[in-house]
Design a protein around this nucleic acid. Structure first.
Lengths: 217, 217, 217, 217
DNA sequence: TATGAATGAGTGTTCATTCAT
DNA sequence: GATGAATGAACACTCATTCAT
């Protein structure tokens, strides 16, 4: 719960390959079942280690969860940061994030699901720390970019830059969830039909049209 | 899991007041802890009945969860349907949904959280049935309205009506979650600042400005 | 650790016969293995109940231990109190306690061993409460009786009544332990030889001679 | 459990200073927690060695316990033997043992507690061997001294020398326990009051008065 | 119909002991 | 000889579900 590292020094010392296997197993299990239904025994078995070892690496199930969540956040951060901090215009960034969301399908499914789960499960304390951690990045960057674009007269001036940033991120976050979460996947299909769901390019273009229009002028 | 009623005939026969007490306790517990951490004993106790009775009314914990989820969906449906099926223009509907989201804060917190939770927890089978159940309503209504407005030349013609409906709902759904879920609440504050978070009118107006712009022309 | 009852209301409601079976199993297990080596599963099995039930009756292993210890104390108290509070002369009381110690052999072995164990295992907090509970009885009664006998000139006046009471109880306590504890049993045999160990009357008489001499005049 | 040495040849070969550190750590841990709650990892860490090494020196936790218990007995033996085997009169010896008990407070607390613990924890096999080992010394010496003093007409003739020796040792053993064990410490305070408990000289004198009276004539 | 005591598989976690380095 | 990572059986405890009353 607090600000300390969530794994023991022993975990630092084991081979990287093993470390990754363990983290991947944990991500998969927590993503699939959520924190409380996840089984530490299942994680250990999937990783090919003993339960004893798992608890040598992480003091508690909660520590393991936190470690894995922060790892997920870091991975997302590493995907978003170069895009968000590039000097490109807002809508270019947005387009690249949309691309990244589609690209994550199949390859970061577990991470996406995990991200979705902890935004839902987190208690007050964790929620606050975690929202700061990831959303801080986009909240700040989007708001600033929108404000600057307004100053330069590139986009309409009547939008509140922070609210616009929030709404933009709502769209992008839900898009990301729609790639991996069962419910949101079905929901997307319900909206755009089974044909369009498979046609990434058409979907992307339609999304960008909407967003361009929202900011346009 | 399957398509049948989730409670027993006995549940139909008990007094309505008792029935409501039980469902309310279940909503509260599932909303607070999620499916697997929720305790059937806690639900029974909160409802003032014995565990024995609870399991006379619902065959399993899962049945109780499903019953409660479908009840929640029904409640949401009852809120949305009159708005969505009214003859009003799209943006008037949207404004009324935004209003409803803000109004739900404090009064439908448990329902909001429950809705958030099962969209995250649902497995393939449940997800499909449930998405159909609620999202079907808005997916259909929004898409049709947008298409009709385009036909009449009220709004821009370059939007794909179904994708636009999807993106619009992304915004509204996340707004609703932001009213009750800890993580999304903090995230909203991070975007708009602690002052605006308390100033519903300013927030609503800014949201509507954005949406009007997105559809405008 | 604190002053509350150590069992749940459920335990009060079950048949007395079952309650006694459970307590007896617990006394036996704790006496045999001590607190930390004792197995709750073994206790449940010996009592012919499920582990689930055991933990319905006692919130924790510690509560079960405390319940059983206090029960043991109570039993000892019930044996000693009538003797100690009778109006008889000191040495008559002592003789009756010696008799009770011998009589406890075979019938209260587990209780004796348990008593021995917790005097050894108790931590500061428990030690203080428990010593007060049982030793308070004899400490007070013996000291007073000795002082009164001195006032009446029945016994020698140069003894400190409280220290004499302490030393008297040392002898009686160790005698009691010597009836059931393996180590002290062997030790007694080592002192008095295997023949005398079996000859209760001779042993009792020799003990009383010593004590009479200590107080005499 | 059997009669062989409890450590490996490797333990003989390491530096004495290290050997002592390990034994001291083990005494402290076993004294504090008892056999089954004691942690081998804690002992190794306190001694500044690895667990691997600890198990190179002692085949099992039990062997370590036995080694340490026998070491403790040896230390006690070394304290008692010169007193008990001196040519002094019985009551002089007794007085020196009482002095030693008081002197052990604070300096041999761990050893006292350990002694107390294994007299309680020992099973049949161990109990027999250990009682022989230490109590043999005093049982023999006291009994003989009392008998001889009776022959010389120094003390009363009506005491059974072996029973008297047993009762004398009961008093001295409990006195020793009362110096370190939490329960017996509180019990002593209960008997003699908080003031006398701190006043060693008064206490010692009162004890000797009692014992002198018991043997007197 | 209502109750709540009973169940036992399953959970997270510990720890003496082993063994490759 | 020394290390400490690895093991897995065992532990205390929980909880959905059953069923006798």
């Amino acid at each position: 719960m607090n600000e300390h590292r969530h794994w023991t020094p022993v975990f630092d010392r084991i081979p990287e390959e093993k470390r990754n296997r363990i983290l991947a197993s944990a991500v998969a299990e927590f993503a699939k079942r959520g924190f409380s239904a996840a089984s530490t025994a299942a994680i250990a078995e999937a990783a090919g280690i003993s339960i004893g070892s798992l608890f040598k690496y992480f003091r508690t199930k909660e520590d393991l969860y936190l470690a894995v969540v922060e790892l997920g956040l870091q991975t997302l951060d590493e995907t978003l940061r170069p895009i968000v901090e590039s000097g490109e215009p807002l809508l270019t960034k947005v387009e690249r994030i949309v691309d990244a969301a589609f690209a994550s399908r199949g390859v970061h499914d577990d991470l996406n699901r995990l991200y979705n789960r902890f935004t839902t499960e987190a208690d007050a304390d964790l929620a606050n720390r975690l929202s700061r951690s990831l959303e801080g990045l986009t909240a700040e960057a989007y708001s600033r970019m929108i404000a600057e674009a307004q100053d330069r007269g590139e986009i309409r001036r009547d939008l509140d830059p922070r609210v616009a940033a929030f709404l933009l991120d709502n769209i992008l976050l839900m898009l990301q969830f729609s790639m991996s979460n069962e419910y949101y996947r079905d929901r997307l299909a319900l909206y755009v039909g089974p044909r369009t769901v498979e046609d990434d390019d058409t979907l992307k273009r339609a999304i960008m049209t909407f967003l361009r229009s929202a900011f346009a002028e």
